[in-house]
Design a protein around this nucleic acid. Sequence first.
DNA 1: GGCGACATGAAAGCTTCATGACATTTTGTA
DNA 2: TACAAAATGTCATGAAGCTTTCATGTCGCC
Lengths: 233, 233
Amino acid sequence: MRLLVVEDEEAIRRQLVEFLGQQGFAVDQAADGREGLYFAQEYDYDLAIVDIGLPILNGIELIKKARAAGKQYPVLILTARGNWQDKVEGLEAGADDYLVKPFHNEELRARVNALIRRASGHASPRLEFGPIVIDTAAKTVSRNSELVELTSYEYNTLEYLAVHAGEAISKTVLTEHLYQQDFERDSNVIEVFIGRLRKKLDPDGSLQLITTMRGRGYRFNPDFQAMAKAQGN
Amino acid sequence: MRLLVVEDEEAIRRQLVEFLGQQGFAVDQAADGREGLYFAQEYDYDLAIVDIGLPILNGIELIKKARAAGKQYPVLILTARGNWQDKVEGLEAGADDYLVKPFHNEELRARVNALIRRASGHASPRLEFGPIVIDTAAKTVSRNSELVELTSYEYNTLEYLAVHAGEAISKTVLTEHLYQQDFERDSNVIEVFIGRLRKKLDPDGSLQLITTMRGRGYRFNPDFQAMAKAQGN
DNA sequence: GGCGACATGAAAGCTTCATGACATTTTGTA
DNA sequence: TACAAAATGTCATGAAGCTTTCATGTCGCC
């Protein structure tokens, strides 16, 4: 999945690129309209995220030109709070959805996924690992077909681990994913969430769902069901 | 499937034609009421999309004349923000649904599909969830076959949740759906409407119709009846 | 054994949500 | 237009649920 981000504000662009990168997207970035247009016309993305207020060539024009050049990928526009005229123009120019700055990563993720899902036609994305099923649209998790109630931080932690199943995820990375900027370091929140997840998803510890990798973080075990079987359950 | 688009604003007409084209419809277009009427009377479309504020001959008249000429295809009218009087007149003149400009392509697609489906006879415009039945054509809701009186905002909120049953819908998204344009987001209207819906549809709270997903929004529970049963009711 | 990294229960503190009451706006009717 | 009724929005308050911290215990590894 390849995305284009066109945003002139350094901080926001970095937030976007970093977060989307973490989500597993390949991201091209541009800081002004002209550069953005070059990318937009040159490649076929799965989604483009375009700020309206861009230097040199504004977002509206960018979108119009990209559409005129036959590009059909979905476009999400970013507008400043209160400038609804912008989003009107943006939608008219061919954008598919908008997001008002500043936004939460959570909201961004929901929109991005929705647009990509819709464009590609197929339905709600589920992550299945044996008895554990994660429905990323409903943001719910079930075990043996029974819903398991998770809080939003618990869910986000789990989803991130599951998306990167098999990899060791450091606590720093998890923290950065869960919280916007830098966050109090000497806290054991992550341990606490991991503990709660284990308790809710695997109360008797038979599944070995999340492995602790001392010094390196945690790992969502993609073959835990096989292991569980091997161990007699 | 052949559609007619009558809209004088260049940008919006292009948005419509392009998007509908992408969706696989054959689209005829007209930029004023007279031209539109010619098409409207000449052919049998599967759907016509008509702006109310048209030059030469306005949308209301166009619809009346087309109906008078025996045309029965569904008509979707477009109105500017806030001109509710328009949509009332439009519906009285024989339109089937309306959309407030500007609109999301997704919203457009939903309406277009709904109208075509409805007109072609098959496919029910009803959403059924056990004892709760939502008739999207009549915009009514019943519980255990008894009509439940909902106000229009209550209905819209419910319909959106029900159409996306099973998904977590954030309050931001709900707000954007209910109110076309900018709306102060430091209000708790959504909570209030959810509360009123719950009270009307499930006074004793036994159905668990709408689940609160703290921090993530609300979820219309697609299997609430199963749950209710499991709980002894 | 000792150190550091991780686990966990309990509780404080904070955020989000639910709700009744009221204010305001819209709509229907004379 | 004026008035009444209904619908929508706002506000304050209390409750519920979630997050974070803290204290303390456990485990792995040198």
